[in-house]
Design a protein around this nucleic acid. Structure first.
Lengths: 244, 244
DNA sequence: AATAATTTTGCAGACCCTGCACATTTGCAT
DNA sequence: ATGCAAATGTGCAGGGTCTGCAAAATTATT
C-alpha cells in the first residue's frame, strides 16, 4: 500500500517482491511493537502479520531487533555521495550538515511511521542501542569519505576499486585505523547531533519544527558548544545559579 | 581521585563475594572472547570458567552480550558528581571534559583488560552497539546534570542528594522531554568524543598517548570543528589553533 | 515448454533467557 | 553457639531466538 519512493530502476519483478516483503515485515514489526511493546512481539507474530513464514523473517533481518530499527540500507551511500558532490569550498561541517539534511527531509515525509518507530525505541532502549550500532557501521564509511574530501591521504589509499564492499575480518584491519582523528570525530559528532535533533524533535514536536532544531544543533556545534543563548529567554544569563 | 582503594566501605562479606563473582564472570567472558571470538563463547562456557552455574550468569547480566561490555555501574554517577562539584565559573564543555578525564585515568591503569575488551568489540560490532546502548542510558542522566548546573529547572528537580543508585525506569518518562536541547547535545557529543578518542587511541596506541588524543578531541569541539590544521605529527601545536 | 536461478518454507537442533522451587550461604538476634 | 530471616546459587522446565539443510514454489531464461 505504501510505495515508499518510485525507484527509477524498474528492476525485475523478483526484486520488487523482495523489497515489498522487507517493507511489510518492517512495518508490521513497528506497528505491533507500538501497540504491545517490542519485547512482547515475537518473530512468529511479525511474520504472520506480514504473510510470510517465520523462517523467511531471518532471510531479511539478522536478528529479531533489526526489524524495528531497519532503515533504508542505501541512506548512508546517498549521504556520502552528497558529500562528494558538494562544492570543495564548503567547510567540512557544512558539507556534512547539508548532506544529512537532504536525507532527513525524507523523514519528515514519513512522519507517521517514524513517530511510531521513535515511540517504540523510547520504550525500549535495548533497541535504540541496536539502531545506534547500525548507524556506527556507517560512521566509518562516512569518516573515510570526509577524509578523502579533505585531501588525498598519503600512501595507503586503496580506494581505486570501488566494488569492494566486503566487511569481513581479513588479515589487516589497519586501513580503518589510518583515518585521522578529525574525520572520525566529525562523522561521529554529526551523527550524534542528528540523533539528538530527532529525539528533541519528538519531545517538542508540536511547537517546534525539525528544520529549526536541526539548524540549532549544528549552530551549537560550529560555535564550539559555548554557553547557550537561552533560547526562550531574551537575555543571555551568565549563570545565575541558585544551587546551594 | 587516583586512589585505587576508593571502596572504603567495608561492605559485608556477602557484598564482596557478589562483586568477586561478577568480576570473575566478566573477566572470563572477555578473555574467552578474545581467543575464540565472542560469538563462539556460550554462557555455559563462561559460567564454567568462572566456577558458577549457568543459571547464576543471568543473575548478574541481563544478556549474554552484557558480560563483554560490562563497565563499572558507578562510573556515570561519579562523572555527574564531578560535574556538580566543578566550580560554577567553568564553561560547561570544560566541566564535562574534566569530569570525564578523571574517569578515563582509570582506563589507562587497567590498560591490559581494556585492550582485550577493545579487541573483542572491534571484532564484533554487534557488541559495540550494546556498549553504546549502556552508555546512552547514562547520557540522559548526564544531560539532566548539565541542565541543573546551567540553571535551576522550573519545578521538577528530583534526586539532588540521590546517593541511591537507582537506574530503574520510573513511572513518568515525561521529565526527560523537558531537558533542553543544549544539555542533551552537550552530553551526547561529549560521550561521542570520548568514544572516538578511545577508538583512535587503540588504533594509534604506540606513538600517541591517550591524554593527548583526549585533549585534541575536545579542542576540536570547543573550536567548532573547523578545518584541521594538518596535524600529521604527534603534537597538536596547542589549543590556540582557532582561526583568528 | 523445459531448465536454471532464486526465494520460500518446514524441520531439526543449539543456544539464549526466564520463572519457579529448593539447597546453600550469610547476617543477625537470641 | 544456635536458630531464624534474608540473600544467593543451582537445577529444571519451557518458550523464544537463530542457523543449516534440503525440498517445494516462484521467477527468469532458453
Amino acid at each position: 500500500m505504501q510505495s515508499v519512493t518510485t525507484k527509477g530502476a524498474p528492476a525485475g519483478l523478483r526484486e520488487r517482491k523482495k523489497q515489498a516483503t522487507r517493507a511489510a515485515l518492517a512495518e508490521a514489526a513497528v506497528r505491533l511493537a507500538a501497540e504491545h511493546g517490542a519485547e512482547n512481539v515475537t518473530v512468529e507474530t511479525i511474520s504472520n502479520a506480514a504473510g510470510v513464514s517465520p523462517r523467511t523473517f531471518f532471510n531479511y533481518f539478522d536478528s529479531h531487533d533489526d526489524a524495528f530499527v531497519m532503515a533504508d540500507p542505501d541512506v548512508g551511500e546517498r549521504i556520502r555521495c552528497a558529500i562528494r558532490d558538494a562544492p570543495a569550498e564548503l567547510p567540512p561541517l557544512e558539507a556534512v550538515r547539508e548532506a544529512m539534511a537532504g536525507e532527513l527531509a525524507d523523514v519528515e515525509r514519513q512522519h507517521e511511521v517514524w513517530s511510531l518507530r521513535a515511540k517504540v525505541l523510547q520504550k525500549s532502549p535495548h533497541l535504540l542501542a541496536r539502531g545506534l550500532g547500525l548507524h556506527m557501521a556507517e560512521e566509518r564509511d562516512l569518516a573515510r569519505t570526509i577524509a578523502d574530501r579533505l585531501g588525498p591521504r598519503t600512501g595507503t589509499d586503496a580506494a581505486e576499486a570501488g566494488t569492494e564492499a566486503d566487511a569481513n575480518a581479513g588479515a589487516k584491519p589497519c586501513d580503518d585505523a589510518d583515518i585521522e582523528l578529525y574525520p572520525r570525530l566529525l562523522a561521529a559528532v554529526a551523527g550524534t547531533a542528528v540523533r539528538v535533533a530527532i529525539e528533541h524533535w519528538y519531545a517538542h514536536s508540536p511547537p517546534m519544527t525539525f528544520p529549526d532544531i536541526f539548524r540549532d544543533v549544528f549552530t551549537h556545534l560550529s560555535a564550539g558548544l559555548p554557553q547557550p543563548p537561552a533560547q526562550t529567554d531574551g537575555r543571555p544569563s551568565d549563570g545565575r545559579s541558585t544551587e546551594s
